[in-house]
């Protein structure tokens, strides 16, 4: 087995809408090493969630299809798996934590019944073993009174507790890959910090790989080793975490970092990137960010930039074109 757990190559996804097909994901490539935490950031509508759903094989079957590229998980192209084969991976080798702990737990089941689901699907265990495993994992995620919680219903728990239950649901079968789709967005800040701390601990303990999807750069700085910045369905920048914050290359990333509140700018208005993410049907030729970019020049509007590499630091911006840089100097 190679060091790389998940490799996405040139992924393109097409949605069939009433107005004709659109491509919310175009040419996305990145890889995730085992034990690594990779952050995926971007505004709403940038394609973060669609990418993660594609990895889990949860895209709506009839309305969407993968039109190009591949997703390799453990050296196997999972885009070609049958539904049945995929089912063996889900919840077992790869799990997902959803954004809304309030709506992600089925209200008619007790916590115990909910948590026994992945074990029933993937592991051959007796009822007693299952109960033990569930109580164990609940204790791991820091739920007090685990023995009683398993008899309670989701609505009896607070938001933070429910997210802990969601995490334990994802951890039960000890997956190699854990996808977190904005796991702390719906929680208040103190709980958020607890949950992030918890996820870090668990990750270190189990040596899992984390694909961490968020729009919160603070969370990214806290959690991730490397970051993929997405914009309008494309990757615009990939960098190691410190490099990204110190030397963001793409104007979009610069804008994102710039628009965070800091201690010393408390009284002034926050910086914001003007305009909105173009909708998939609005994307034409040229750089997708050009219409909002403070540095845009003629070429940006006419030609789509390729990905420029600077060591491990990738960015999709004409500013990085060495010819241009040469001219500027």
């Amino acid at each position: 087995m190679s060091d790389i757990l998940l490799e996405i190559k040139d992924l393109g996804i097409q949605f069939n809408t009433g107005k004709g097909p659109i491509q919310p994901i175009r040419g996305v490539s990145f890889s995730l090493k085992s034990g690594e935490t990779l952050g995926v950031v971007g505004e709403s509508g940038s394609g973060k969630s669609v990418t993660s759903l594609a990895v889990m094989g949860l895209l709506p079957e009839k309305k969407s299809k993968i039109v190009s590229g591949s997703i390799h998980f453990n050296d196997e192209d999972i885009t070609k798996l049958s539904e049945k084969q995929y089912r063996k991976l889900r919840g077992n080798e790869m799990s997902m934590i959803f954004q809304e702990p309030m709506t992600s737990l089925n209200p008619v089941f007790t916590i115990g019944e909910l948590l026994s689901e992945p074990l029933k699907q993937h592991k051959k265990m007796s009822k007693k073993e299952r109960k033990e495993a569930i109580i164990n994992v609940l204790k791991q995620v820091g739920i007090p009174r685990a023995e009683q919680i398993i008899n309670e219903y989701p609505h009896q728990l607070s938001g933070g507790m429910r997210q802990r239950v969601m995490i334990s649901l994802a951890l039960l079968c000890e997956p190699k890959l854990l996808i977190c789709d904005e796991p702390t967005t719906a929680l208040d800040v103190t709980i958020q910090a607890q949950i992030l701390e918890l996820m870090k601990e668990i990750k270190a303990e189990k040596n899992m790989s984390l694909l961490f999807i968020t729009h919160d750069l603070g969370v990214v700085a806290e959690m991730c080793d490397r970051v993929v910045v997405m914009y309008a369905g494309e990757i615009v920048e990939v960098a190691e975490i410190n490099e990204l914050f110190d030397q963001p290359l793409h104007p979009y990333t610069q804008g994102l970092i710039h628009s965070r509140p800091t201690n010393n700018s408390r009284k002034s208005a926050l910086y914001s990137i003007k305009g909105q993410v173009p909708r998939p049907e609005e994307i034409g030729i040229g750089c997708t960010f050009a219409n909002r970019c403070p540095h845009a020049f003629e070429k940006c509007l006419k030609e789509t930039p390729p990905i420029f590499e600077k060591g491990d630091h990738l960015s999709k911006c004409w500013l990085q074109d060495s010819k241009r840089q040469a001219v500027m100097k």
């Binding site: 089912r87 919840g91 809304e100 209200p107 689901e117 993937h122």
Partner: peptide, 15 residues
């Protein structure tokens, strides 16, 4: 379309 149904699919429950 509820999230908990997606979550159930994500844990590998058959259709």
């Amino acid at each position: 379309e509820k999230e908990f149904i997606t979550a159930a699919i994500a844990t590998g429950v058959p259709k």
